[in-house]
Design a protein around this nucleic acid. Structure first.
Length: 1043
RNA sequence: GCGCGCUUAGCUCAGUGGAAGAGCACUUCCUUCACACGGAAGGGGUCGCAGGUUCAAGUCCUGCAGCGCGCACCA
């Protein structure tokens, strides 16, 4: 570190060290190193979308993971932070299709066809897939990039299909015609979790229908969707509703379509809310989940009047067919109106489900889809510790195995517990797990894992069918018993053995029932590539759908580690054995159902163990309006621009410092308009140019402070990390070492509880307030060049050292100076390590530049700070060895307190900081000259005279504490009024505080019940305030008469 | 409708029953040889409201209000 710049310049530093870390393979995890002395620590990254770009949410999330990973490395653990991306089915397909359309290459993906289109998606992925990875590297993420995974990697895809096959085998996956959430834009089904409810302003339309059997009797029906009237197949009322009960069983004439006003029944159903609308419900089984359920109960027909894209089909009738559903709604209302059956329409606000991705109203639609009944629900639900429970933690914070008292299933035996941070999310999780609905896992997309199922419908005898299946299994395949596990066959919903020998036995059985020709549906689920050609040749067609992206993500913790599902093979998988279960998961609470819950279930189902031991849910980063920041809303600043402007370390520190456990963060300066003209920052050059970010500015300044503190040390010269001589420690040294100890303890506590923001506060306070503001300033007394110190302390020097003070000795001064540097190096080298997880780049630069790496073994910080040991609290041995003394530290803080009081006098008497002042100190006890010199320096005083018998002139401002009385003789310029005002304020304050303490101590309830320590504290406070009050009163009495 | 958060200084927010805190902003002073991305001092708070528990409540309990977020088939 020659030519140290005055300000920290992050850009070059960051690139240099990241490259160094990669070259040195610092992030690469080696399962072979894991052992009793080197425990494993693992995190899997929440995989960002492969075509995504970094958002502020990613910054928060991945910085936290990086902090955990770097801290774990410094703790001596073998760390695997496993990175990767997911294929993001809908998002990626949409992006690619849109770009091809914009380029004019296609009008629709059908123009290319499935294979060619997928080819283009892969090209897109190759081109854009690395962007977010590079961005994570800019942030400093210490992922093991050699293990980067993608959910569409061949091995990963195989895991997905194996799991599909397994669940199909187990009967947990089934195909069914059910109501699903249909997105008319993406043209695919969605899971319930991908639907967001939004309030919509619409109308409640009241229209009337005549009861066929009782002419002249009309029923009024309220609906928000008049366009679905042609799909109505009944009208429902509550049988307990006296208004309508008598009409049940009769019919009404359906209003639309006009050309087909069919008669539909009036049915009674308990679910009908008597209070709502008119108490009469139109029942539209094809287009409403609740109505569908009613339809099932009453065996109603289903009329589907919508096309997949949300337009009306011909069943909607002449007037509506072809119209978009929104247009059709208005048209239907007009039709009713023109026929005099629309009684009124009222403005109405209701909740409508929207496709999260396409942001259009979803359409409840009856369609054939694949569903999953969740596996391992019992253990997955039982393993998460409920709020308030701590579990019994081991040394490394891993909860030990313990049975759950409320395990809902007998199979859920003693198991490890998982902790959520903050724990309130456990309740949300539990609630969702309680009401699990089957998961719709099929998507009508091309980009994704294609469902490994082949189907054929045929008119055939079972004997012929089985014979044919034998051919399919055996022809050109070398099929063996082990392959049989990779095939599941169902005929008409019944499982058929995939073992050729058993099939042959069936074929050769004499059962005459096998010869009847009938319609059969044969479904084959297989992983076996060899069968595919045979299946095609025999008229089987592969299911065109792909699986929900989350159906691959939920396997992430073990599929990324090379899990195969083959027990023997997995037992030999060193990575899986060493690093699963993982230690921590860091993610947003918005995907607790999508991802976290499902991973837990998959973990139990396939590894028999929870996938991670702790889940940290981050806050959500919002803009000043409280909206979640996202790329699509355009309200997120580009993190890379922030990194360019402030430095990666500052962005990390600023964000982490601002986000307490589990709270959302509003990340924007509301007073933007006031500051945007601030010329100190050239934000105009930055593309996002939104605002300035006080959080980041603070953090950048902090990095600069750290930089300059080291620069200051560097400028002092001398040996690096010399030996500390306990005999030469000053009270300031005792103080800072004990403050360092305190900071380490606070940090350990913060880490144990995942309180990262708290950790940054501790670092900030310790480094800036304690180390820089007090300790370094105080140290400047000892750090002055030796000659200067001799002059300052020699006889006739300006400082009022008592004449019989120690003889000044050049060698002694030099030794003191060297010892001071040794303490500074000790503290700084510890501080850099404490900062490293948060500020990886600047700490590495300083660690190397300051020479702290020099004498250390390569694997303990010699090569890089990354592997330096995390500082331990100063133990008894250390305290003993260096004679660390609480009393000395107390003396130092008393000094600083007195300095604060003295500086305050300056202010009170309007004395400019530059004005050289003489103070007089009447010490309460013995006080070494070097202590006085520190006080003088911190006061920026010309002199502090020590005079045990000093009696200041009347009206001389003075302050006092345990150390003594500090007077500021202001010859001839005493502002009596100012001093009276100051002392009066002080006296009143003392009186008030004294009264409070006296009242408490006078209360027998208090003195009897309060813990001794608190009582002691209050008694101490009493004497303290009494002393202050006396002093203020005495000073007031001492003031000359006004005038 | 049910659940979960939040409400503390002008702003953004910490606060773990025992003397109300930080950063920014504001006022005044200082370019003193680490740092003006800096230093010193200062002003500013009935801790949302109302009850309760306690010797002691910003902190625990109950209710209420406002804001936010989830979950939920009210057409």
């Amino acid at each position: 570190m020659s030519e140290i710049p005055k300000a920290y310049e992050p850009q070059a530093v960051e690139a240099k060290w990241y490259q160094f870390w990669l070259e040195q393979r610092c992030f690469v995890a080696d399962p072979a190193r894991v052992g009793p002395k080197r425990p494993a620590y693992a995190i899997v990254i929440p995989p960002p979308n492969v075509t995504g770009v970094l958002t502020m949410g990613h910054v928060l999330n991945n910085t936290l993971q990086d902090i955990l990973a770097r801290k774990a490395r410094m703790d001596g653990k073998e760390v695997l932070w496993l990175p990767g991306t997911d294929h993001a089915g809908i998002a990626t397909q949409t992006v690619v299709e849109r770009s091809l359309k914009q380029a004019g290459e296609i009008k629709h993906r059908n123009d290319l066809g499935r294979e060619a289109f997928l080819e283009r998606v892969w090209q897109w992925k190759e081109k854009h897939g690395g962007i977010i990875i590079q961005q994570l590297q800019k942030l400093g993420a210490s992922c093991d990039w050699t293990r980067e995974r993608f959910t569409m990697d061949p091995e990963y895809s195989r895991c997905v299909q194996r799991v599909f096959l397994d669940l199909y085998h187990k009967g947990l996956i089934y195909r069914g015609k059910r109501m699903v959430n249909w997105c008319p834009v993406s043209l695919t089904a969605l899971s319930d979790e991908e639907v967001v409810m939004k309030e919509q302003r619409g109308f409640l339309y009241y229209f009337k229908v005549e009861v066929a059997e009782v002419p002249g009797t009309w029923l009024t029906i309220a609906t928000t969707r008049p366009e679905t009237i042609p799909a109505d197949t009944a009208v429902a009322v509550n049988p307990k509703d006296p208004r309508y009960a008598g009409l049940i069983g009769k019919h009404v004439r359906r209003a639309l379509p006009l050309e087909d006003q069919a008669l539909i029944p009036i049915i009674g159903d308990e679910q009908i809310d008597v209070e709502f609308g008119t108490g009469v419900l139109k029942v539209t089984p094809a287009h409403d989940p609740a109505d569908f359920a009613i339809g099932l109960r009453h065996h109603l027909p289903v009329i589907d009047i919508l096309n997949p894209d949300g337009t009306m089909n011909e069943l909607a009738g002449r007037d509506l067919a072809g119209l978009d559903r929104a247009v059709a709604r208005r048209k239907a209302a007009e039709l009713l109106s023109s026929h005099g059956t629309l009684e009124k329409q009222e403005p109405y606000v209701n909740n409508v489900g929207f496709s999260e991705r396409a942001d259009v109203p979803i359409e409840p639609r009856l369609s054939e889809q694949w569903f999953l009944k969740y596996p391992s629900v019992g253990p997955a639900r039982a393993c998460v510790l409920p709020p308030g429970e701590k579990g019994s933690s081991g040394d490394d914070g891993v909860p030990s195995a313990r049975a759950h008292s409320a395990a809902p299933e007998a199979g859920a035996v003693a198991q490890e517990r998982m902790r959520f941070f903050p724990d309130r999310w456990a309740k949300v999780y539990d609630h969702w797990m309680e009401g699990l609905q089957d998961w719709c896992i099929s998507r009508q997309l091309w980009w994704g894992h294609r469902i490994p199922v082949w189907t054929r419908r045929s008119e055939i005898s079972l004997r012929s069918l089985y014979t044919e299946l034998l051919t399919v299994l055996l022809e050109n395949t070398g099929f063996s018993a082990c392959d049989a596990r990779e095939v599941a066959i169902r005929v008409d919903g019944q499982t058929l053995p995939a073992d050729p020998a058993e099939l042959r036995r069936l074929v050769e059985s004499g059962d005459p029932g096998l010869d009847a020709v009938a319609a059969h549906e044969t479904v084959i689920c297989t992983l076996c590539d060899k069968l595919h050609a045979n299946l095609a040749r025999h008229g089987f067609a592969q299911d065109p759908d792909v699986l929900d992206t989350w159906f691959s993500s939920w396997l992430w913790p073990f599929a990324t580690m090379g899990w195969t599902g083959d027990p023997a093979q997995d037992a030999r998988n060193a990575t899986l054995q060493a690093f699963y279960p993982t230690t921590d998961l860091v993610t947003g609470p918005d995907i607790i159902f999508f991802w976290v819950a499902r991973m837990i279930m998959a973990g139990y189902e396939y590894l028999g163990k929870l996938p991670f031991r702790n889940v940290y849910f981050t806050g959500i980063i919002r803009d000043k309006h409280g909206h979640k920041m996202s790329k699509s809303l355009g309200n997120s600043p580009d993190p890379l621009a922030l990194i360019a402007g402030y430095g990666a370390d500052a962005v990390r520190f600023g964000i982490i410092r601002s986000v307490p456990l589990g709270q959302d963060l509003i990340f924007e300066d509301k007073e933007f308009d006031r500051f945007k003209k601030d010329e100190r920052y050239d934000f105009a050059r930055l593309p996002w140019n939104p605002a300035r970010f006080p959080q980041l500015e603070l953090a950048r300044n902090f990095c600069n402070k750290l930089w300059n503190a080291c620069r200051f040390r560097q400028m002092q010269g001398g040996a690096t990390e010399g030996e500390i001589d306990r005999a030469l420690l000053t009270s300031d040294d005792h103080w800072i070492l004990l403050r360092l100890d305190q900071a380490i303890r606070e940090l350990d506590e913060a880490f144990a509880n995942y309180r990262f923001a708290e950790a940054t506060s501790t670092l900030y306070r310790f480094f800036w307030s304690e180390y820089c503001d007090w300790y370094i300033e105080a140290s400047k007394a000892a750090l002055r060049p030796v000659e200067e110190n001799r002059a300052a302390e020699g006889p006739g020097g300006a400082v009022g050292v008592s004449p019989d003070g120690p003889a000044v000795d050049g060698a002694a001064v030099a030794a003191l100076r060297a010892n001071k540097l040794a303490v500074i190096d000790f503290v700084l080298s510890h501080t850099l390590r404490l900062f490293h997880p948060f500020l990886p780049f600047i700490t590495e630069e300083l660690w190397q530049g300051m020479g702290y790496a020099q004498d250390l073994p390569a694997d303990q910080g010699g090569r890089t700070i990354l592997s330096a040991h995390w500082p331990r609290p100063l133990d008894d041995e250390f305290r003993e060895h260096y004679g660390l003394d609480e009393a000395a530290a107390k003396l130092a803080s008393a000094k600083y307190e007195l300095v604060g009081l003295g500086r305050n006098l300056r202010r009170e008497f309007n004395l400019p900081a530059a004005k050289r002042l003489r103070f007089v100190l009447r010490p309460a006890g013995a006080l070494a000259p070097e202590e006085v010199e520190v006080i003088r320096l911190l006061l920026n005083a010309e002199a502090v005279e020590v005079d045990g018998g000093y009696e200041p002139a009347r009206g001389t401002p003075r302050v006092a504490n345990d150390l003594g009385e500090l007077s500021l003789p202001l010859e001839g310029v005493i502002d009596v009024a100012a001093e009276r005002s100051r002392l009066t304020k002080e006296r009143d304050k003392a009186r008030a505080e004294l009264a409070k303490v006296q009242e408490k101590l006078g209360n027998p309830n208090f003195t009897q019940k309060v813990p001794p320590a608190v009582l002691e504290e209050h008694r101490r406070r009493l004497t303290e305030w009494e002393g202050k009050l006396n002093q203020a009163e005495a000073s007031l009495a001492n003031l000359p008469a006004a005038g």
